[in-house]
Design a binder for these strands. Sequence first.
DNA 1: TTGTACGCGTTATCAA
DNA 2: TTGATAACGCGTACAA
Lengths: 335, 335
Amino acid sequence: MKRITIYDVAKEADVSLATVSRVINDSNVVREDTRMRVQQAIEKLGYKPNAIAQGLALSKTTTISIVMSEKLFAYNAKILNGLMDVAKIYNYNIMFHTTSKGISKMQDVIESIIKSRVDGVILFNDNFSEDEMEVLHEYQIPMVVVGSKLKGQKIGNVGNVYINFERMAYEFVNECFEKGIDDISMVEDKLNLSMMEQLKAGVDRAYAEKGLVFNKYVTYDDSYKSSYTFLSDYYKRNKPSRMVITFRDSQAIALMNACKESGYSIPDDTQLVCILNSKYLTMMRPMISTYNIPEYDLGAVAMRLLTKMLVDDESVKQNKDIEISFSKMFRETTK
Amino acid sequence: MKRITIYDVAKEADVSLATVSRVINDSNVVREDTRMRVQQAIEKLGYKPNAIAQGLALSKTTTISIVMSEKLFAYNAKILNGLMDVAKIYNYNIMFHTTSKGISKMQDVIESIIKSRVDGVILFNDNFSEDEMEVLHEYQIPMVVVGSKLKGQKIGNVGNVYINFERMAYEFVNECFEKGIDDISMVEDKLNLSMMEQLKAGVDRAYAEKGLVFNKYVTYDDSYKSSYTFLSDYYKRNKPSRMVITFRDSQAIALMNACKESGYSIPDDTQLVCILNSKYLTMMRPMISTYNIPEYDLGAVAMRLLTKMLVDDESVKQNKDIEISFSKMFRETTK
DNA sequence: TTGTACGCGTTATCAA
DNA sequence: TTGATAACGCGTACAA
């Protein structure tokens, strides 16, 4: 089957290619009977417009790049659903890029983004530096960062849809204080350092306001293959804090198992809150307390913001920062 | 910053655009000093070749589409890692499409694939019909189906990288028979009907060879919000089989919880095997037995096959079907 | 309402 | 070793 072009359709319908183009793009200056003729020719030949040629002619690809850390695929699934659904609504294609330590450095990803001439970029706030954003900005590519709040001075052309993790942690710690709990520890998640940083800032602030110092930020090095091996080791030697905050479900579950195996009871000896929700938290016994973050909305709002920036940058000039609210979903590991 | 084109570079380096093109594409007929001059001009201007224009000129986009069901994103993370890594090695961009019931029907996805003029397509074997593959074939788009074995007569230009679930189930059931277990049930997973079908076929075959009939294929309708609600309901009224097969981790965990809460013990009253491995299986107590499917390899092999089909269809004409082996990882829910 | 001709940014062919 | 020029497939002023 030969590649059908707009010329073939034009010949078949006995019109010029301009008319075919008008039909494709719903221009309303086409007479009804010629439109019909063209439509029939399109059907008959199975013609599909060449998006590449359209992109070249219009300097617009109707394509948006999404950049995500390879390791966070599974965890960002719902955000991605939100992104994809909205992109679909606005008829944008999605170019998908992943970053990892070995093969695909952020620099290479940026290179291919620029070459692809995508209309915009969605960045997950866990895997890029300010320099890299600066490069995209030099090439005038609008972007939206999703996840946590950007720090540093704002670069133009950048939107930000985020959860206020600093406030989340601050409020949570204060609630703990009110219940008389001030022995709190927080387990680091190496996959999401920017969010950890903000959480820690919130905890620090709450402690500082009480004239205390937070010093139970639990980190472990890569010699431990997983947080589980570390934690089960740790809780054999250390008594758990009365309240532990983890970021990710696997850490919460690891901690739960480690505590149980070391003879500690949850929530009686130690309470547990996992920042990121997941269905696995409710599958555990006791069911693990968490925060409810509207992940789908995070993605949907981010993509909607980007599409707005694309069609009319003025209308969103003032409010490119959108904070998404969260709520508590405390279950059986807290009391 | 004005869009820099090959003309700007040519002017800056005082050569013709043809020479710039040669430098970009590593043609070795360029004299060294002019190459240097051009390189410097490229650096100075920050020129990046326009992939769209290249695509138009070459009728080749170096882009591959990946089509995946929206709901399976989290579960296919490792396969996707394999796909992405290999794509990166061969310098292919990835166009990412998701299918779901509401917004993005497979038909629309195919439409945009054809319009995008991607060089090839990776399909996950869970969300398309033979008709849809036929359409892609009409437009001569090479594709590789990853996951389970394709049934039906083979369409040209289609590769298949798969796990032989039929054999997996067949062998497993025979091992059960050898241990004297013939009371087996299998829980349906609605997200992956094609794989379920093959598993069931394997079970059926093993039963048939014993002159028995398999009749414990557990299905539940959508009125149950999750397999957990169904199973915990079910096991209050029914005694569990001595061996239960589930497909997905959440089903296995749900079953485990349901059994425990109904007073049954695993693995003493009922044993449990989950076909798809995940880290959550080892976080449960007892740790759940599973099969070890090299998911990353599934993706990597599939993408490698597709790239080979793209550069030289002849060399892979004979063997476009690649079976990936699996192994048992039986843990504490079997004995 | 329709058609002509040029531009979009690159590669490839052919000539110099 | 380089340069001029015709594709690649489409959108769009401008003319008819």
